[in-house]
Design a protein around this nucleic acid. Structure first.
Lengths: 226, 226
DNA sequence: GATCATTAGATTGTCGACAATCCTGACGTT
DNA sequence: AACGTCAGGATTGTCGACAATCTAATGATC
Protein backbone atom coordinates (compact mmCIF):
# COMPACT_ATOMS: atom_id res chain seq x y z
CA UNK A 1 0.00 0.00 0.00
CA UNK A 2 1.27 3.41 -0.98
CA UNK A 3 1.88 5.87 1.81
CA UNK A 4 2.81 9.16 0.21
CA UNK A 5 -0.28 9.22 -2.00
CA UNK A 6 -2.66 8.53 0.82
CA UNK A 7 -5.81 10.13 -0.50
CA UNK A 8 -6.12 9.93 -4.27
CA UNK A 9 -7.53 12.97 -5.95
CA UNK A 10 -11.08 12.70 -7.16
CA UNK A 11 -12.77 14.86 -9.78
CA UNK A 12 -13.71 18.01 -7.93
CA UNK A 13 -17.21 18.32 -6.68
CA UNK A 14 -20.63 19.41 -7.87
CA UNK A 15 -21.20 15.72 -8.43
CA UNK A 16 -22.04 13.32 -5.65
CA UNK A 17 -19.24 11.44 -3.95
CA UNK A 18 -20.55 8.12 -5.19
CA UNK A 19 -20.52 9.40 -8.74
CA UNK A 20 -16.97 10.69 -8.44
CA UNK A 21 -15.88 7.33 -7.08
CA UNK A 22 -17.64 5.68 -9.97
CA UNK A 23 -15.87 7.83 -12.56
CA UNK A 24 -12.47 7.33 -10.96
CA UNK A 25 -12.80 3.58 -10.61
CA UNK A 26 -14.14 3.27 -14.12
CA UNK A 27 -10.99 4.91 -15.41
CA UNK A 28 -8.74 2.68 -13.34
CA UNK A 29 -10.49 -0.45 -14.52
CA UNK A 30 -10.53 0.58 -18.16
CA UNK A 31 -6.84 1.43 -18.11
CA UNK A 32 -5.96 -1.70 -16.18
CA UNK A 33 -4.61 -0.05 -13.04
CA UNK A 34 -7.07 -2.32 -11.31
CA UNK A 35 -6.22 -5.52 -13.15
CA UNK A 36 -8.82 -7.47 -15.08
CA UNK A 37 -10.06 -10.47 -13.17
CA UNK A 38 -8.86 -9.21 -9.80
CA UNK A 39 -11.00 -9.13 -6.69
CA UNK A 40 -12.29 -5.78 -5.50
CA UNK A 41 -12.55 -5.27 -1.76
CA UNK A 42 -15.04 -2.76 -0.47
CA UNK A 43 -13.27 -1.89 2.81
CA UNK A 44 -9.92 -1.55 1.08
CA UNK A 45 -11.17 0.90 -1.53
CA UNK A 46 -13.20 2.75 1.07
CA UNK A 47 -10.06 3.38 3.14
CA UNK A 48 -8.11 4.34 0.05
CA UNK A 49 -10.54 7.08 -0.94
CA UNK A 50 -11.56 8.07 2.59
CA UNK A 51 -15.15 7.29 1.80
CA UNK A 52 -17.74 5.19 3.53
CA UNK A 53 -18.54 1.73 2.31
CA UNK A 54 -22.04 2.87 1.39
CA UNK A 55 -20.86 5.40 -1.15
CA UNK A 56 -18.35 2.97 -2.49
CA UNK A 57 -20.93 0.23 -2.85
CA UNK A 58 -23.02 2.58 -4.94
CA UNK A 59 -20.07 3.15 -7.24
CA UNK A 60 -19.44 -0.58 -7.51
CA UNK A 61 -23.04 -1.22 -8.41
CA UNK A 62 -22.87 1.27 -11.23
CA UNK A 63 -19.74 -0.42 -12.48
CA UNK A 64 -21.57 -3.70 -12.37
CA UNK A 65 -24.38 -2.34 -14.49
CA UNK A 66 -21.74 -1.17 -16.96
CA UNK A 67 -20.52 -4.72 -17.23
CA UNK A 68 -17.07 -3.89 -15.88
CA UNK A 69 -17.63 -5.70 -12.58
CA UNK A 70 -19.28 -8.93 -11.61
CA UNK A 71 -20.80 -9.17 -8.15
CA UNK A 72 -21.98 -12.25 -6.37
CA UNK A 73 -23.97 -12.10 -3.17
CA UNK A 74 -21.99 -12.57 0.01
CA UNK A 75 -18.84 -13.03 -1.99
CA UNK A 76 -17.93 -9.68 -3.48
CA UNK A 77 -17.00 -8.06 -6.74
CA UNK A 78 -14.42 -8.97 -9.35
CA UNK A 79 -13.28 -7.06 -12.36
CA UNK A 80 -14.41 -8.89 -15.48
CA UNK A 81 -11.63 -10.66 -17.24
CA UNK A 82 -10.81 -10.05 -20.84
CA UNK A 83 -11.38 -13.09 -22.98
CA UNK A 84 -11.05 -13.65 -26.67
CA UNK A 85 -14.66 -14.73 -26.74
CA UNK A 86 -15.83 -11.59 -24.97
CA UNK A 87 -13.98 -9.42 -27.45
CA UNK A 88 -15.52 -11.16 -30.43
CA UNK A 89 -18.98 -10.95 -28.86
CA UNK A 90 -18.45 -7.25 -28.47
CA UNK A 91 -17.70 -6.91 -32.17
CA UNK A 92 -20.88 -8.70 -33.17
CA UNK A 93 -23.02 -6.48 -30.98
CA UNK A 94 -21.26 -3.38 -32.26
CA UNK A 95 -21.76 -4.47 -35.84
CA UNK A 96 -25.49 -4.71 -35.26
CA UNK A 97 -25.93 -1.53 -33.25
CA UNK A 98 -23.53 0.73 -35.09
CA UNK A 99 -24.87 -0.50 -38.40
CA UNK A 100 -28.30 0.64 -37.29
CA UNK A 101 -26.89 3.88 -35.89
CA UNK A 102 -25.28 4.59 -39.22
CA UNK A 103 -28.51 3.93 -41.10
CA UNK A 104 -30.40 6.27 -38.82
CA UNK A 105 -27.67 8.88 -39.00
CA UNK A 106 -28.00 8.93 -42.77
CA UNK A 107 -31.71 9.63 -42.41
CA UNK A 108 -31.78 11.92 -39.40
CA UNK A 109 -28.52 13.87 -39.52
CA UNK A 110 -28.68 17.61 -39.17
CA UNK A 111 -26.52 20.05 -41.06
CA UNK A 112 -24.41 20.55 -37.97
CA UNK A 113 -23.79 16.82 -37.78
CA UNK A 114 -22.57 16.82 -41.36
CA UNK A 115 -20.31 19.79 -40.83
CA UNK A 116 -18.79 18.18 -37.73
CA UNK A 117 -18.27 14.87 -39.52
CA UNK A 118 -16.50 16.52 -42.45
CA UNK A 119 -14.33 18.55 -40.13
CA UNK A 120 -13.35 15.47 -38.17
CA UNK A 121 -12.51 13.56 -41.31
CA UNK A 122 -10.26 16.38 -42.52
CA UNK A 123 -8.47 16.41 -39.20
CA UNK A 124 -7.91 12.67 -39.35
CA UNK A 125 -6.61 12.90 -42.90
CA UNK A 126 -4.14 15.52 -41.82
CA UNK A 127 -2.92 13.41 -38.91
CA UNK A 128 -2.75 10.37 -41.08
CA UNK A 129 -0.52 12.12 -43.61
CA UNK A 130 1.70 13.43 -40.88
CA UNK A 131 2.26 10.02 -39.43
CA UNK A 132 2.37 8.12 -42.70
CA UNK A 133 1.17 4.68 -41.81
CA UNK A 134 2.07 4.75 -38.14
CA UNK A 135 -1.26 4.18 -36.47
CA UNK A 136 -0.34 6.25 -33.48
CA UNK A 137 -3.22 8.54 -32.70
CA UNK A 138 -5.56 6.40 -34.70
CA UNK A 139 -7.37 4.61 -31.86
CA UNK A 140 -8.71 7.88 -30.47
CA UNK A 141 -9.51 9.10 -33.96
CA UNK A 142 -11.39 5.93 -34.65
CA UNK A 143 -13.26 6.41 -31.42
CA UNK A 144 -14.24 9.93 -32.40
CA UNK A 145 -15.60 8.67 -35.66
CA UNK A 146 -17.81 5.97 -34.21
CA UNK A 147 -18.89 8.14 -31.33
CA UNK A 148 -20.07 10.98 -33.50
CA UNK A 149 -21.99 8.83 -35.88
CA UNK A 150 -23.84 7.22 -33.03
CA UNK A 151 -24.68 10.67 -31.68
CA UNK A 152 -26.03 11.69 -35.07
CA UNK A 153 -28.46 8.76 -35.09
CA UNK A 154 -30.78 10.66 -32.77
CA UNK A 155 -31.91 7.45 -31.08
CA UNK A 156 -31.38 8.01 -27.37
CA UNK A 157 -31.61 4.34 -26.45
CA UNK A 158 -29.01 3.46 -29.05
CA UNK A 159 -26.76 6.29 -27.94
CA UNK A 160 -27.00 5.25 -24.32
CA UNK A 161 -26.39 1.58 -25.03
CA UNK A 162 -23.31 2.24 -27.12
CA UNK A 163 -21.73 5.33 -25.61
CA UNK A 164 -22.55 4.77 -21.95
CA UNK A 165 -22.25 1.03 -21.84
CA UNK A 166 -20.42 -0.84 -24.56
CA UNK A 167 -17.74 1.68 -25.40
CA UNK A 168 -16.13 1.41 -21.98
CA UNK A 169 -15.66 -2.27 -22.54
CA UNK A 170 -14.23 -1.52 -25.97
CA UNK A 171 -11.79 0.92 -24.43
CA UNK A 172 -10.83 -1.65 -21.81
CA UNK A 173 -9.89 -4.18 -24.45
CA UNK A 174 -7.99 -1.58 -26.45
CA UNK A 175 -5.98 -0.36 -23.51
CA UNK A 176 -5.11 -3.72 -22.09
CA UNK A 177 -4.72 -5.85 -25.17
CA UNK A 178 -3.13 -2.80 -26.80
CA UNK A 179 -4.49 -3.07 -30.28
CA UNK A 180 -3.51 -0.02 -32.26
CA UNK A 181 -4.87 -1.14 -35.57
CA UNK A 182 -2.37 -1.28 -38.44
CA UNK A 183 -5.31 -0.59 -40.67
CA UNK A 184 -4.92 3.15 -40.45
CA UNK A 185 -4.94 4.00 -44.13
CA UNK A 186 -7.60 1.50 -44.99
CA UNK A 187 -9.75 2.51 -42.04
CA UNK A 188 -9.56 6.13 -43.10
CA UNK A 189 -10.84 5.27 -46.55
CA UNK A 190 -13.68 3.27 -45.09
CA UNK A 191 -14.60 6.13 -42.79
CA UNK A 192 -14.59 8.44 -45.76
CA UNK A 193 -17.01 6.33 -47.76
CA UNK A 194 -19.32 5.89 -44.79
CA UNK A 195 -19.58 9.63 -44.33
CA UNK A 196 -20.31 10.04 -48.03
CA UNK A 197 -23.23 7.65 -47.71
CA UNK A 198 -24.51 9.57 -44.71
CA UNK A 199 -24.23 12.83 -46.62
CA UNK A 200 -26.15 11.29 -49.50
CA UNK A 201 -28.89 10.21 -47.10
CA UNK A 202 -28.48 6.62 -48.24
CA UNK A 203 -29.30 4.74 -45.05
CA UNK A 204 -29.09 1.29 -46.54
CA UNK A 205 -25.62 1.82 -47.98
CA UNK A 206 -24.40 3.57 -44.86
CA UNK A 207 -25.42 0.59 -42.77
CA UNK A 208 -23.77 -1.93 -45.07
CA UNK A 209 -20.51 0.01 -45.14
CA UNK A 210 -20.41 0.41 -41.39
CA UNK A 211 -21.05 -3.26 -40.83
CA UNK A 212 -18.29 -4.18 -43.25
CA UNK A 213 -15.98 -1.74 -41.53
CA UNK A 214 -16.56 -3.32 -38.15
CA UNK A 215 -16.44 -6.83 -39.47
CA UNK A 216 -13.12 -6.14 -41.16
CA UNK A 217 -11.79 -4.90 -37.86
CA UNK A 218 -13.05 -8.04 -36.18
CA UNK A 219 -11.41 -10.29 -38.73
CA UNK A 220 -8.19 -8.37 -38.31
CA UNK A 221 -8.28 -9.16 -34.62
CA UNK A 222 -9.19 -12.77 -35.20
CA UNK A 223 -6.18 -13.17 -37.45
CA UNK A 224 -3.93 -11.59 -34.88
CA UNK A 225 -5.18 -13.88 -32.15
CA UNK A 226 -3.98 -17.05 -33.77
CA UNK B 1 -52.20 4.34 1.63
CA UNK B 2 -53.44 0.83 2.12
CA UNK B 3 -53.79 -0.38 5.69
CA UNK B 4 -54.86 -3.99 5.58
CA UNK B 5 -51.97 -5.00 3.32
CA UNK B 6 -49.36 -3.37 5.46
CA UNK B 7 -46.35 -5.49 4.62
CA UNK B 8 -46.42 -6.71 1.04
CA UNK B 9 -45.11 -10.19 0.46
CA UNK B 10 -41.72 -10.46 -1.13
CA UNK B 11 -40.29 -13.47 -2.98
CA UNK B 12 -39.08 -15.74 -0.19
CA UNK B 13 -35.45 -15.67 0.62
CA UNK B 14 -32.18 -17.20 -0.43
CA UNK B 15 -31.74 -13.97 -2.37
CA UNK B 16 -30.64 -10.75 -0.75
CA UNK B 17 -33.27 -8.35 0.48
CA UNK B 18 -32.15 -5.71 -2.00
CA UNK B 19 -32.55 -8.16 -4.84
CA UNK B 20 -36.02 -9.17 -3.70
CA UNK B 21 -37.03 -5.54 -3.52
CA UNK B 22 -35.62 -5.05 -6.98
CA UNK B 23 -37.61 -7.93 -8.45
CA UNK B 24 -40.82 -6.84 -6.77
CA UNK B 25 -40.52 -3.22 -7.80
CA UNK B 26 -39.56 -4.19 -11.33
CA UNK B 27 -42.80 -6.12 -11.60
CA UNK B 28 -44.85 -3.25 -10.23
CA UNK B 29 -43.30 -0.79 -12.63
CA UNK B 30 -43.62 -3.03 -15.65
CA UNK B 31 -47.27 -3.74 -14.91
CA UNK B 32 -47.99 -0.12 -14.14
CA UNK B 33 -48.96 -0.52 -10.48
CA UNK B 34 -46.38 2.16 -9.94
CA UNK B 35 -47.48 4.52 -12.69
CA UNK B 36 -45.15 5.60 -15.45
CA UNK B 37 -43.78 9.08 -14.86
CA UNK B 38 -44.57 9.10 -11.15
CA UNK B 39 -42.13 10.08 -8.46
CA UNK B 40 -40.65 7.36 -6.29
CA UNK B 41 -40.00 8.21 -2.67
CA UNK B 42 -37.33 6.27 -0.84
CA UNK B 43 -38.72 6.65 2.69
CA UNK B 44 -42.23 5.79 1.59
CA UNK B 45 -41.22 2.55 -0.11
CA UNK B 46 -38.87 1.68 2.74
CA UNK B 47 -41.77 1.92 5.21
CA UNK B 48 -44.02 -0.04 2.91
CA UNK B 49 -41.67 -3.00 2.70
CA UNK B 50 -40.25 -2.71 6.21
CA UNK B 51 -36.77 -2.34 4.80
CA UNK B 52 -34.05 0.18 5.40
CA UNK B 53 -33.44 2.96 2.97
CA UNK B 54 -30.07 1.50 2.10
CA UNK B 55 -31.45 -1.75 0.77
CA UNK B 56 -34.14 0.12 -1.05
CA UNK B 57 -31.68 2.48 -2.64
CA UNK B 58 -29.77 -0.47 -3.98
CA UNK B 59 -32.94 -1.78 -5.59
CA UNK B 60 -33.67 1.63 -7.09
CA UNK B 61 -30.19 1.84 -8.54
CA UNK B 62 -30.62 -1.49 -10.26
CA UNK B 63 -33.89 -0.29 -11.69
CA UNK B 64 -32.12 2.79 -12.95
CA UNK B 65 -29.51 0.71 -14.73
CA UNK B 66 -32.38 -1.22 -16.34
CA UNK B 67 -33.69 2.03 -17.74
CA UNK B 68 -36.96 1.80 -15.81
CA UNK B 69 -36.09 4.64 -13.44
CA UNK B 70 -34.41 8.00 -13.85
CA UNK B 71 -32.56 9.42 -10.87
CA UNK B 72 -31.25 12.92 -10.43
CA UNK B 73 -28.90 13.85 -7.62
CA UNK B 74 -30.55 15.47 -4.62
CA UNK B 75 -33.91 15.25 -6.30
CA UNK B 76 -34.89 11.62 -6.42
CA UNK B 77 -36.15 8.96 -8.75
CA UNK B 78 -38.99 8.95 -11.24
CA UNK B 79 -40.40 6.10 -13.25
CA UNK B 80 -39.63 6.68 -16.92
CA UNK B 81 -42.62 7.77 -18.90
CA UNK B 82 -43.81 5.94 -21.94
CA UNK B 83 -43.54 7.99 -25.07
CA UNK B 84 -44.26 7.22 -28.67
CA UNK B 85 -40.70 8.13 -29.52
CA UNK B 86 -39.28 5.81 -26.88
CA UNK B 87 -41.33 2.93 -28.21
CA UNK B 88 -40.14 3.46 -31.77
CA UNK B 89 -36.54 3.75 -30.61
CA UNK B 90 -36.95 0.43 -28.86
CA UNK B 91 -38.09 -1.17 -32.08
CA UNK B 92 -35.05 0.08 -34.01
CA UNK B 93 -32.66 -1.26 -31.41
CA UNK B 94 -34.47 -4.56 -31.30
CA UNK B 95 -34.37 -4.83 -35.07
CA UNK B 96 -30.60 -4.46 -35.01
CA UNK B 97 -29.90 -6.74 -32.06
CA UNK B 98 -32.44 -9.45 -32.72
CA UNK B 99 -31.47 -9.51 -36.37
CA UNK B 100 -27.92 -10.24 -35.30
CA UNK B 101 -29.11 -12.74 -32.69
CA UNK B 102 -31.06 -14.55 -35.36
CA UNK B 103 -28.06 -14.66 -37.69
CA UNK B 104 -25.90 -16.09 -34.93
CA UNK B 105 -28.59 -18.55 -33.88
CA UNK B 106 -28.64 -19.94 -37.40
CA UNK B 107 -24.90 -20.53 -37.22
CA UNK B 108 -24.49 -21.59 -33.62
CA UNK B 109 -27.68 -23.37 -32.68
CA UNK B 110 -27.42 -26.78 -31.04
CA UNK B 111 -29.74 -29.69 -31.72
CA UNK B 112 -31.49 -29.03 -28.42
CA UNK B 113 -32.16 -25.46 -29.52
CA UNK B 114 -33.75 -26.70 -32.71
CA UNK B 115 -35.89 -29.21 -30.91
CA UNK B 116 -37.09 -26.59 -28.44
CA UNK B 117 -37.88 -24.13 -31.22
CA UNK B 118 -39.92 -26.66 -33.17
CA UNK B 119 -41.78 -27.69 -30.04
CA UNK B 120 -42.59 -24.10 -29.22
CA UNK B 121 -43.81 -23.42 -32.72
CA UNK B 122 -46.12 -26.43 -32.61
CA UNK B 123 -47.55 -25.23 -29.31
CA UNK B 124 -48.18 -21.78 -30.72
CA UNK B 125 -49.87 -23.22 -33.80
CA UNK B 126 -52.17 -25.25 -31.60
CA UNK B 127 -53.10 -22.22 -29.51
CA UNK B 128 -53.58 -20.15 -32.58
CA UNK B 129 -56.04 -22.61 -34.08
CA UNK B 130 -57.93 -22.83 -30.83
CA UNK B 131 -58.41 -19.12 -30.62
CA UNK B 132 -58.92 -18.50 -34.31
CA UNK B 133 -57.71 -15.00 -34.86
CA UNK B 134 -58.17 -13.73 -31.33
CA UNK B 135 -54.67 -12.72 -30.37
CA UNK B 136 -55.20 -13.59 -26.76
CA UNK B 137 -52.23 -15.51 -25.53
CA UNK B 138 -50.13 -14.25 -28.41
CA UNK B 139 -48.09 -11.61 -26.61
CA UNK B 140 -46.54 -14.19 -24.29
CA UNK B 141 -46.08 -16.58 -27.17
CA UNK B 142 -44.35 -13.90 -29.16
CA UNK B 143 -42.13 -13.25 -26.18
CA UNK B 144 -41.22 -16.90 -25.95
CA UNK B 145 -40.22 -16.90 -29.57
CA UNK B 146 -37.92 -13.92 -29.42
CA UNK B 147 -36.51 -14.94 -26.07
CA UNK B 148 -35.53 -18.40 -27.21
CA UNK B 149 -33.90 -17.26 -30.40
CA UNK B 150 -31.78 -14.79 -28.52
CA UNK B 151 -30.75 -17.54 -26.12
CA UNK B 152 -29.75 -19.73 -29.07
CA UNK B 153 -27.39 -17.05 -30.38
CA UNK B 154 -24.80 -18.05 -27.80
CA UNK B 155 -23.56 -14.47 -27.50
CA UNK B 156 -23.69 -13.67 -23.79
CA UNK B 157 -23.43 -9.93 -24.27
CA UNK B 158 -26.30 -9.97 -26.72
CA UNK B 159 -28.37 -12.17 -24.44
CA UNK B 160 -27.77 -9.92 -21.47
CA UNK B 161 -28.53 -6.74 -23.37
CA UNK B 162 -31.80 -8.03 -24.75
CA UNK B 163 -33.15 -10.36 -22.08
CA UNK B 164 -31.96 -8.56 -18.96
CA UNK B 165 -32.33 -5.01 -20.17
CA UNK B 166 -34.45 -4.20 -23.15
CA UNK B 167 -37.16 -6.78 -22.75
CA UNK B 168 -38.42 -5.29 -19.51
CA UNK B 169 -39.03 -2.04 -21.29
CA UNK B 170 -40.78 -3.92 -24.06
CA UNK B 171 -43.02 -5.60 -21.50
CA UNK B 172 -43.73 -2.27 -19.88
CA UNK B 173 -45.00 -0.81 -23.14
CA UNK B 174 -47.03 -3.93 -23.86
CA UNK B 175 -48.72 -3.97 -20.49
CA UNK B 176 -49.48 -0.32 -20.26
CA UNK B 177 -50.24 0.59 -23.83
CA UNK B 178 -51.94 -2.79 -24.11
CA UNK B 179 -50.94 -3.78 -27.58
CA UNK B 180 -52.11 -7.30 -28.25
CA UNK B 181 -51.14 -7.47 -31.87
CA UNK B 182 -53.91 -8.36 -34.30
CA UNK B 183 -51.18 -9.84 -36.45
CA UNK B 184 -51.45 -13.25 -34.84
CA UNK B 185 -51.82 -15.35 -37.95
CA UNK B 186 -49.28 -13.37 -39.92
CA UNK B 187 -46.83 -13.30 -37.07
CA UNK B 188 -47.06 -17.04 -36.73
CA UNK B 189 -46.17 -17.51 -40.37
CA UNK B 190 -43.23 -15.18 -40.03
CA UNK B 191 -42.02 -17.06 -36.98
CA UNK B 192 -42.30 -20.27 -38.90
CA UNK B 193 -40.15 -19.03 -41.78
CA UNK B 194 -37.55 -17.64 -39.43
CA UNK B 195 -37.17 -20.97 -37.70
CA UNK B 196 -36.84 -22.67 -41.06
CA UNK B 197 -33.94 -20.40 -41.94
CA UNK B 198 -32.31 -21.15 -38.60
CA UNK B 199 -32.73 -24.87 -39.18
CA UNK B 200 -31.16 -24.48 -42.61
CA UNK B 201 -28.21 -22.69 -41.05
CA UNK B 202 -28.79 -19.72 -43.35
CA UNK B 203 -27.66 -16.84 -41.15
CA UNK B 204 -28.10 -14.15 -43.74
CA UNK B 205 -31.70 -15.09 -44.51
CA UNK B 206 -32.55 -15.59 -40.86
CA UNK B 207 -31.36 -12.07 -40.09
CA UNK B 208 -33.29 -10.52 -42.95
CA UNK B 209 -36.50 -12.29 -41.98
CA UNK B 210 -36.21 -11.34 -38.33
CA UNK B 211 -35.58 -7.71 -39.21
CA UNK B 212 -38.61 -7.66 -41.47
CA UNK B 213 -40.67 -9.28 -38.77
CA UNK B 214 -39.78 -6.62 -36.25
CA UNK B 215 -40.09 -3.80 -38.73
CA UNK B 216 -43.55 -4.99 -39.68
CA UNK B 217 -44.52 -4.94 -36.04
CA UNK B 218 -43.15 -1.44 -35.73
CA UNK B 219 -45.08 -0.23 -38.75
CA UNK B 220 -48.20 -1.79 -37.33
CA UNK B 221 -47.74 0.23 -34.18
CA UNK B 222 -46.97 3.39 -36.12
CA UNK B 223 -50.22 3.04 -38.03
CA UNK B 224 -52.15 2.52 -34.84
CA UNK B 225 -50.65 5.59 -33.23
CA UNK B 226 -52.08 8.04 -35.76
C1' DG C 1 -2.03 -39.29 4.11
C1' DA C 2 -6.51 -37.70 2.76
C1' DT C 3 -11.00 -36.10 3.90
C1' DC C 4 -14.19 -33.81 6.66
C1' DA C 5 -15.72 -30.90 10.63
C1' DT C 6 -14.70 -26.69 13.25
C1' DT C 7 -13.35 -22.35 14.39
C1' DA C 8 -11.29 -17.69 13.59
C1' DG C 9 -10.96 -13.93 10.70
C1' DA C 10 -12.57 -11.07 7.36
C1' DT C 11 -16.09 -9.51 4.12
C1' DT C 12 -20.62 -8.51 2.75
C1' DG C 13 -25.62 -7.29 3.87
C1' DT C 14 -28.55 -4.42 6.56
C1' DC C 15 -29.77 -0.83 9.53
C1' DG C 16 -30.65 3.75 11.86
C1' DA C 17 -28.84 8.54 12.46
C1' DC C 18 -26.78 12.91 11.03
C1' DA C 19 -25.58 16.44 7.49
C1' DA C 20 -26.36 18.64 2.96
C1' DT C 21 -29.56 19.82 -0.49
C1' DC C 22 -33.89 20.74 -2.58
C1' DC C 23 -38.98 21.99 -2.86
C1' DT C 24 -43.01 24.69 -0.94
C1' DG C 25 -45.21 28.38 0.61
C1' DA C 26 -45.28 32.73 3.12
C1' DC C 27 -43.59 37.27 3.42
C1' DG C 28 -41.91 41.64 1.90
C1' DT C 29 -40.50 44.77 -1.85
C1' DT C 30 -41.06 47.18 -6.27
C1' DA D 1 -49.97 42.02 -9.15
C1' DA D 2 -45.36 40.23 -10.09
C1' DC D 3 -40.99 39.22 -8.58
C1' DG D 4 -37.35 38.00 -5.42
C1' DT D 5 -36.16 36.42 -0.59
C1' DC D 6 -36.35 33.58 3.05
C1' DA D 7 -37.69 30.09 6.52
C1' DG D 8 -39.87 25.29 7.34
C1' DG D 9 -40.34 20.74 6.12
C1' DA D 10 -39.07 16.89 3.71
C1' DT D 11 -35.94 14.19 0.91
C1' DT D 12 -31.57 12.67 -0.52
C1' DG D 13 -26.45 11.81 0.41
C1' DT D 14 -23.16 10.01 3.60
C1' DC D 15 -21.55 7.70 7.49
C1' DG D 16 -20.29 4.20 11.16
C1' DA D 17 -21.92 -0.03 13.60
C1' DC D 18 -24.03 -4.58 14.06
C1' DA D 19 -25.57 -9.08 12.17
C1' DA D 20 -25.25 -12.75 8.62
C1' DT D 21 -22.36 -15.16 5.57
C1' DC D 22 -18.37 -16.80 3.33
C1' DT D 23 -13.21 -18.21 3.19
C1' DA D 24 -9.24 -20.23 4.98
C1' DA D 25 -6.60 -22.51 8.24
C1' DT D 26 -6.54 -25.70 11.96
C1' DG D 27 -7.31 -30.00 13.98
C1' DA D 28 -9.76 -34.53 14.27
C1' DT D 29 -11.14 -38.85 12.24
C1' DC D 30 -10.95 -42.70 9.00
Amino acid sequence: MDLKERQPELPESNLSLAERLFLTLRGEIVEGRIPAGSKVSEPELARRFNASRGSLREALMRLESLGLLERRVNVGARVVDLTERGLLELYDVREALEGMACRLAALERTDEDLKALRKMLARHEQQEELQAGRAYFQPEGDFDFHFRIVQASGNDLLIDTLCNRLYYRVRMYRYQLGMASPRAKRAFNEHSHIIEAIEAGDGELAEILMRRHIRASRQNIEKKLR
